[in-house]
Amino acid sequence: MVSMPVEPSIPANPRQAVADAYNVLAKPYLNWKESNGSKDGERGLQHQFNHFLQLLERIPEVSDNAQVLELGCGAGIPWTDMAARCLQSTGHITAVDISQAQIDLASQHLLQSDTPHSNITLLCQDIMNLQFEANHFDAIYAIFSLIHLPPNDQKMALVNIFKWLKPGGLVFMNFSGDPEASVSVHQWIDDKTEMYWSALGLGGYDEQLKNVGFEIVVREVAINVEDGREIPFVYYIAKKV
Rank of each mutant, 00 (worst) to 15 (best):
G169A: 13
S176Q: 12
V218I: 13
T115L: 04
P60E: 03
H51M: 10
L71H: 03
A134F: 00
H109V: 06
G228I: 02
A95P: 07
V217C: 08
W32V: 02
R229H: 10
A139D: 08
M195D: 01
K240V: 05
L149A: 03
I59W: 00
K240T: 07
E42W: 09
I93M: 12
F52R: 05
A181R: 03
P5F: 14
C73D: 07
K27R: 11
M1Q: 08
H109W: 06
P78K: 14
Q208R: 15
L146F: 10
L71M: 11
T90E: 07
I103Q: 10
A17C: 15
P11K: 00
E226I: 15
F144Q: 00
I59V: 14
I10K: 04
F175L: 13
S184M: 10
Q154L: 07
A83M: 08
A238W: 10
S184C: 09
W197D: 07
R219G: 00
D138S: 11
K163V: 02
K240M: 09
S176M: 14
W32E: 03
K163E: 13
Q131K: 12
G201A: 13
K39S: 07
E57R: 15
Q100V: 06
G41L: 03
A95R: 05
D64M: 04
C73W: 00
Q88H: 13
D81A: 14
I77Q: 05
L71E: 04
F175M: 15
E61D: 10
N129K: 13
Q88A: 05
P232Q: 08
K33T: 11
